[in-house]
Simulated scan of single mutants.
Amino acid sequence: MVAHNGRLSDGSPPISTIEMKPMSGQLFDHDGQRKYLTADEREAFLKAAERAPREVRTLCGVLAFTGCRISEALALTADRVDLAGRLIVFESLKKRRKGVYRGVPAPPALLDALDLVHNIRQLQQARGGGRNARLWSMSRPTAWRQVKAIMDAAGIGSGPQASPKGLRHGFGVAAVSAGIPLNMVQKWLGHAQLSTTAIYAAAVGDEEHHIASRMW
């Protein structure tokens, strides 16, 4: 991307001009352990999820492919799965006010699975359009345990990355590694500040090598 007037062609400022937050408490914990899933771990997680009950499998898919918070996934109702627009619309629950939404593109296979398992089209055609039909009835602690069990089955281990938050961080790292503009990743993750999103450009391991390889 070519810089113009101090900004990149996608309208976002260069990473060097973004005030980066300290890495402790972000992609690494206080012991220096990473808090995000690598590409291989994300793939292993999704494969392990294929053997889980259908509702757990769809929950895992939404978390992995949209980077949403687990509470945002559990708040999803049928009317916010936009099959025609190929989007899942989340209410950003960490905002200071309610009613702030963001649309995140979703893979066709995930949308098909949501329709099959949760009867999206049927609910949207019913009275009320599915506005009060939550996709998952489980509590947040139950959902957390279900996701953690899938990670255990995938052999991801017991580090800080082995959590629903690790999926969210893994989504951010994967997006930046794929060359998605930071302002777009910011929108998808629902970050208020671009500096929060910019931490994913500091990923290590295979992700860092992938980013660096663009200069080689």
Rank of each mutant, 00 (worst) to 15 (best):
A84E: 04
A78I: 01
V100C: 13
Y101F: 12
R214M: 03
I120C: 02
A84R: 03
A153G: 10
S16Y: 11
L76A: 00
S139I: 02
A174K: 13
G159F: 13
F28Y: 15
A113L: 12
L110E: 00
S24C: 10
A133G: 11
L114T: 01
L114E: 01
A212L: 07
R69G: 02
S177R: 13
A174E: 13
L189T: 02
A154P: 05
R80Y: 00
R69C: 04
P107L: 08
P105E: 08
E208M: 13
A113F: 07
I199N: 03
N119A: 07
L74W: 01
A133R: 09
N183P: 12
E50D: 11
S177E: 15
R54Q: 12
H209N: 13
H191F: 07
P181L: 13
Q186A: 11
N5L: 15
A48N: 02
V89A: 06
T58K: 01
R134Y: 03
G190S: 07
S92N: 14
E208D: 14
Q186M: 11
S137A: 15
A52I: 00
A149T: 06
F90M: 01
H118E: 00
M215C: 05
L74F: 02
G157H: 10
R168P: 09
R121T: 00
F65D: 03
D10Y: 12
S9P: 15
W216S: 12
E41T: 08
F65T: 02
S139F: 06
S158Q: 12
A154Y: 06
L194I: 11
A212S: 03
G128H: 04
I120M: 08
R42D: 14
V147K: 03
E41R: 01
Y101V: 09
S177F: 10
Y36Q: 08
R140S: 14
V56E: 11
P107G: 06
G99A: 06
V176D: 12
A84H: 06
G205T: 04
M215R: 11
A78V: 01
R69D: 02
H210G: 08
G155I: 05
R57W: 05
T58L: 00
S163V: 09
V147S: 03
A203F: 05
L123R: 15
A149F: 04
W144K: 09
T142N: 12
L111Q: 00
F171W: 11
V104Y: 05
R97T: 10
M23V: 13
L116S: 10
R127Q: 14
